[in-house]
Design a protein around this nucleic acid. Structure first.
Lengths: 224, 224
DNA sequence: GAAGTATGTCACTATTCATTCAAATTCTTA
DNA sequence: TAAGAATTTGAATGAATAGTGACATACTTC
């Protein structure tokens, strides 16, 4: 899940266009056609908000101001024209970013994901101990057993990352593939099996506990 | 405590927005709504000052000029429009940076913390030894091996700075670009690769250890 | 405990990504 | 503003890693 995005715009066309785009990118999308509706939809705890400035009931700037105290996620303004950007100047820095229409949808996508990445980075503490001896440092992309690093290749770490961040949760092969490879559509089942095998071999060589457990007929999980 | 920040702006909205943001980031925040008040608040010995240029009583530039002699901390200007930024260039009042509205609040935050980091570095010891022979002096922006300086170009040092200040941490190319270039959005990956190559060539020529390690499929990291 | 299905193993091939070099562009500074 | 320096780009190369398919082994159910 890329994240939950709340899009507020009074134009249905813009709204549905953006919805489609972000859905395809794997976001959960919530929409609102005006300020009032947006206020209600906030209950959904979005990770990021896209806010049109020109709206009939409440304009985006006021809305931003009034929710700022209890909403900490990034807020990106969509401004329809240059005059709006003047407004912003006067009003100044309520939001986290501004994008002037017409914008490239890909640029918008890039900025959204940049903001979410930054957000996530701040919250995430990087080194996690799973027991006295075994730790994973996600920033370093390294796995340690008794202080010794177990060297892993990229995909091996990708898999461990997904599993270990959801201990106990069973990933069937398709989900695991999607999570670690970033794309769905898994052709050959043994791709994953092969990597799992290599991981286990390395863990065994290091005398570390085998955290990856086979759930027969389903997939794999990280032992709690 | 991240530091003490004095924010001077005549617009209450801007002020409260910035206060909230920097409080969340762990700063101690002092605010002033005009030049006169700012002069009094200086007694609080801020570590950094954000100064709006357009203010009714004293404009930011004059204020900066008049306090520069007894205030050594960094001063960042907030300018509402482009003409102001020209003024600043010509004026040369001793400011350390200026940011043109509308700006992304994160960008402002990044610049503030960059200035403070630089400041801190200047006051404390700036030369760090990574082993007996290898040292980096961040204030001088110089790298030494066995007492000999390894001459580096600006961008080369920028990269080394980011990596070496987070040893062990893997930077993917986007993050590295963002950190060293100060902006996100990276089209062509080979910019970084090329600089890394040159750094390595210089290190090799000096017979120094290759501290920059490639993390295949991800990015680079500084060896601990 | 035999049959059937899911997973594990291995050697090999394909692919991806980092590096390199040369050349173009941008930035500095005199 | 021109010369020189620094940075960026693009294409070719090769090494590191990922994927494949055939076979072996293990688990499950009847």
């Amino acid at each position: 899940m890329a994240g939950k995005i709340l899009i507020v715009d009074d134009e249905q066309e813009v709204l549905s266009m953006l919805r489609r785009y972000f859905l395809l990118d794997g976001y959960e999308v919530i929409t609102a056609t005006g300020g009032q509706e947006a206020l209600q939809k906030l209950a959904g705890m979005p990770d990021i908000i896209l806010l049109d400035i020109n709206m009939p009931d409440i304009d985006g700037l006021s809305l931003c101001k009034s929710i700022r105290d209890f909403v900490s996620c990034p807020i990106l303004f969509l401004t329809a024209n240059i005059e709006d950007s003047d407004k912003i100047k006067g009003f100044s820095v309520g939001g986290d970013d501004y994008i002037v229409k017409p914008f490239s949808i890909d640029e918008l996508g890039a900025r959204v994901s940049a903001h979410l990445r930054r957000e996530k980075r701040g919250k995430h503490k990087s080194k996690v101990f799973f027991d006295n001896a075994f730790a994973i440092d996600y920033a370093e992309r390294a796995v340690y057993f008794n202080g010794e690093e177990i060297p892993l290749l990229k995909k091996e770490f990708d898999i461990i990352e997904v599993l270990s961040q959801n201990p106990g949760q069973v990933f069937d092969k398709e989900r695991l593939y999607e999570a670690a490879w970033g794309i769905d559509g898994l052709g050959n089942n043994s791709v994953i099996a092969e990597h799992i095998r290599k991981i286990r071999a390395k863990f065994a060589a290091a005398h570390a506990k085998q955290y990856i457990e086979t759930v027969w007929g389903v997939g794999y999980k990280w032992q709690k």
